[in-house]
Design a protein around this nucleic acid. Structure first.
Lengths: 238, 238
DNA sequence: CGTGGTTTTGATCATAATCAACGTCTGTGG
DNA sequence: CCACAGACGTTGATTATGATCAAAACCACG
């Protein structure tokens, strides 16, 4: 486990508009700096935490991309999300003081480690932080509602279109291109997330390409016709 | 909107082992009584809150059963959960100060209304309450991971078996029979929750009956062979 | 420059959706 | 209390969607 003890302030972090400090006053911001105990590097394919491990901290992603996955007894597993810079992971561990999923880095990554007892302590004093913690958890619940909608009532093309648009939108919010992106995950991981097999992902991407909606070469993807993708998701929007 | 202002104490509520007061000391319990502003009755088919409504409160279910559902633009909707006595609903509203799903009573029901600003205020002082609020939200996140697993990687029979066992287990925790239960929801609602059509639910129930796993007459259901249902979910558990 | 993981594409199959008809229960008003 | 309408549930026949099986191409990496 690689950790770095150099203290780096949230107040000077370029993610402060996306991450934990959102909406805090300058004075409050300084206090948040204290809860980031340290940083930790996680290399590609390594786990940040695993199902069954003791829960101690939430993690703010500084760089890189993670997937979270849950496993059933018989080995099947389900990707429950892909997380990128500024997003908080580890919330699943709070309820039983142990993690219930694995967090795996999809590329070499770095996270800020925030011991949860420190968060609880500070959020008793800093109202804005308390509110923010509640919002982060609520946002995750709402996101999962969206995934349930996806998995429960959309067809393969709709799921993939929604996935690509969501990815592009989140990357754009982080200063990347609105249309060009690199898939950090395999077709199989996308499939697991969307409840489809990797062959279906591959075929559907090819279909989107034939129709001129996107351009894909390997993991590099360009969205050519975002409006057409959006129409796929909401067909009855006449 | 029917509301009742008679104050009823959590401390004397028969749900105190399941609901908001879990794990609180007697002294803390009294303070929680203060956050239950009032009760509200919701009749069958009526909504407790709707997508788009201003978020003000969390609700603890006292009696009855609810479903929550999200809707896509084009009218399709997805049931995201069924909630019963002692469970807390409304968490989706925290992030944007407005609800993002509908909560519909499946039978005449009653909830305790807990204004969220009061909860936040009190949980700054009562550590056990703060912890509990975090656990409730984390538990919901973990539950939704389970639903994603269900929807993403299980077949119709597995989904329905898991659903029935989960329902029976939760009812049993509330003092009802471990094996006998009344489905408060239609086949269509079960189907929406499980990402299946109502005909598939009906057929699969019939199949379970033919195989002697359950007995169904209308909404009345008896689990005859819980072990066999469990084996359906984890086939490779040899 | 090979080796293994990843991706594409084709052929076939299985599962659940769809379409359709009928049966059954519930609740409401006469 | 009964009759009726409408919602709910069951079952059958057929179809569509995506899974599975298989083979080959491609790429990244050591």
């Amino acid at each position: 486990m690689k950790t770095v003890n150099i203290k780096v302030a949230c107040s000077s972090c370029n993610l402060r508009e996306l991450c934990m400090p959102v909406g805090l006053e300058p004075g409050e911001l300084q206090r948040i700096d204290d809860i980031v105990a340290k940083r930790r590097k996680v290399r590609r394919r390594e786990t940040l935490f695993r199902n069954g491990e003791r829960f101690t901290s939430l993690y703010a992603i500084r760089t890189g991309v993670f997937k979270t996955r849950v496993a059933s007894q018989d080995g099947r597993d389900q990707v429950t999300g892909f997380q990128m810079a500024g997003e908080i992971i580890g919330l699943d561990g709070i309820v039983n003081d142990q993690h219930t999923c694995d967090a795996v880095a999809l590329e070499d990554s770095e996270v800020c480690v925030m011991p949860f007892d420190r968060i609880e302590e500070l959020s008793r004093e800093v109202t804005a932080l308390q509110r923010h913690v509640h919002q982060i958890m609520s946002r995750e619940i709402v996101r999962e509602h969206g995934v349930m909608m996806l998995l429960g009532s959309m067809r393969a093309e709709e799921r993939l279109a929604a996935f690509l648009l969501n990815l592009a939108q989140r990357l754009h919010a982080r200063g990347f291109s609105r249309s060009e992106l690199v898939l950090r995950m395999t077709r199989e991981e996308i499939g697991s997330y969307l409840g489809l097999k990797l062959e279906t992902i591959s075929r559907t991407l090819s279909k989107f390409m034939d129709e001129g909606l996107i351009e894909v070469h390997q993991r590099n993807l360009r969205i050519l016709d975002p409006e057409a993708l959006r129409r796929l998701i909401t067909p009855a929007a006449c």
